[in-house]
Design a binder for these strands. Structure first.
Lengths: 338, 338
DNA sequence: TTGTATGCGTTATCAT
DNA sequence: ATGATAACGCATACAA
């Protein structure tokens, strides 16, 4: 692979490389004609500026790195698309890396991105076990970074969040109002703030209605996690009247197992999920779910990052909390209610 | 952001930068002790080699770029995860870019990746309208590249494919054997080879059973596309007895509309989808679907790419055609069949 | 075994 | 308005 460089163009036109360079960088200290001539012949020669060299000297890339724990569920892809839209408008390219929910890979991903001098980072954590010192050092080094969805409170960086407490409360409240007692919460990964907040909301709803608190089971975010938990409930004969799940995927997995074992939804076990995946509307019965504004989350994250990049010193970290809504469907409606 | 360089280490240890450089590059022309000393102090100083500078001089990055048209459906994410697994093992980092099914963005993505000197590319095309000359020039320049899923026949590059013809034939055959006449094919984007091949398979099945060919409707790959097409069918009173859809998403979208209009699945309209999305098992009724080996596709693609990178001159482009299977579920089973 | 010097492709700082 | 030259951080051919 041979690359054409400004040197080649300079040679061909009998000018200096600085003249060629100037032609590309829109400075005014160059004659219009020479500029156009350079641009024209560069184009003819198939010249492409080498961003690597540019990065080396300028220490910036017009690339933005996005790191997410996974992208099999539609939540993260939708966020990414939202962010991408804003960033493309401003001339940034978006590089995506996924960590498979592994902190080790996440670290490598972020380091790769930073080493490659992305102008900024958008990150959703794989877990909150080991990250703190590392991310704090990144922030201290002045690397623009915005966290979303899965965050750690202490980070002095901008964050885009969803009000997990509030919406977990609403979701649980909905189940309580439907008349269900004995509600179980299938929670996500133990070490995430969002998991803690959803649990808090779950508890708060019970307090509000002076209802006895049901059990809380830590599972994860996959369909298989839901299936596993449901099987355990059936085996231990501890099947609750209603389930508030951390996730549509876990809800659907659990629901599937219950159906296979002859339970009726919602007549025997009612369900509310979280995240409004594309599955929610289409499973049987359609499942109630808390809808997060994925696209907005992406856009807001990108905007905060751009602000931080463009106003380096002046930027003050902000935390944005976006609103959602509860889509109520068949899986949670109590028809036998008096 | 101040970076620590080999210069700093050299100064601190009173050695030359080449000694420091050598310490990191595992050549034998350095004394063990100095090497260890350098490594140790480098570590203490928090030194991180600058991959940008390395790329500039070595013209390689140990990065692999993956470009896909979208990643909202689970097909592409699963492929990416498969590829990533192989590539990580060999020390490569994976950069993902998505084109939103736009050729313009796809081009920018690939250029960004190439300009950043990825060692190789894995690409699934957004469409086949404009790409040909560009990709051919890339291939001619010797940039390792493997295409999968959505390809153009003429490219002289390795490809990992699914036998769309065969499996479209099987899927259609299944519907015919169930006794359905008047089968419609909801096809994907018109200009894709996979669309053409699935149509061919659809037709071939009809020929094989000497059954009159039903209609073929070009739609797309989203749930909304399916909904739109179904609505049209109902409005024009041209509802077929069975539908073979290009995609689970379109199938599910269409199915939803039919159900809303009082049609029974499969009693009034039967369905077979494609791609075995995570939805297939969980919608109501569960939908029959052609399952593609997503994970394998990713792994095979990565392996072909690595072979190409490691045996530059010697590599011969190959086309791998992977096998799938038809998961038969309630949506297509004809109970009234004699 | 180590140091010196050159170059990768650019931009930036001087001159001219 | 243009040219010469020094960086950017690293690897490497050559010299010592």
């Amino acid at each position: 692979m041979e690359y054409i460089t400004i040197k080649d163009i300079a040679k061909k036109l009998n000018v200096s490389i600085s003249t060629v360079s100037r032609a590309f960088n829109d400075k005014y200290d160059i004659k219009k004609e020479t500029r156009e001539l350079v641009l024209k012949t560069a184009n003819e020669m198939g010249y492409r500026p080498n961003p690597i060299a540019k990065k080396l000297i300028q220490k910036r890339s017009y690339n933005i790195g996005i790191v997410v724990p996974e992208f099999v569920n539609s939540f993260f892809p939708e966020v990414i698309i939202g962010a991408q839209e804003i960033l493309h408008q401003k001339g940034y390219q978006v590089l995506v890396m996924q960590s498979n929910d592994s902190w080790e890979i996440e670290l490598k991903n972020v380091e790769t991105l930073v080493d490659n001098m992305v102008d900024g980072l958008i990150v959703s954590l794989s877990s909150e076990d080991h990250n703190n010192k590392y991310y704090n050092s990144l922030i201290k080094r002045g690397i623009p970074i915005v966290f979303f969805n899965r965050v750690v409170d202490e980070f002095e960086a901008s964050k885009v969040l969803f009000d997990d407490f509030k919406w977990a409360l609403f979701a649980t409240e909905h189940l309580i109002i439907q008349g269900y007692k004995n509600i179980t919460h299938i929670a996500g990964s133990k070490n995430l703030t969002l998991t803690k907040n959803r649990i808090k909301g779950f508890k708060a709803a019970h307090r509000k209605y002076k209802q006895e608190l049901g059990s809380i089971i830590y599972a994860g975010f996959t369909m298989e996690d839901g299936e596993r938990v449901a099987l355990e409930m059936i085996e231990k004969e501890k099947v609750p009247r209603a389930i508030f799940a951390a996730n549509d995927a876990t809800a659907i997995g659990a629901m599937k197992i219950f159906k296979e074992h002859g339970f009726l939804i919602p007549d025997d076990v009612a369900f509310v999920g979280f995240s409004e995946s594309r599955l929610a509307k289409n499973v049987s019965p359609p499942i109630s779910s808390v809808e997060q504004p994925t696209y907005d989350i992406g856009q807001s994250t990108a905007k905060l990052l751009l602000d931080q990049i463009e106003n380096k010193g002046l930027h003050i970290p902000q935390t944005l909390i976006l609103n959602g809504r509860l889509n109520i469907r068949e899986s949670s409606i109590n028809l036998k209610k008096v």
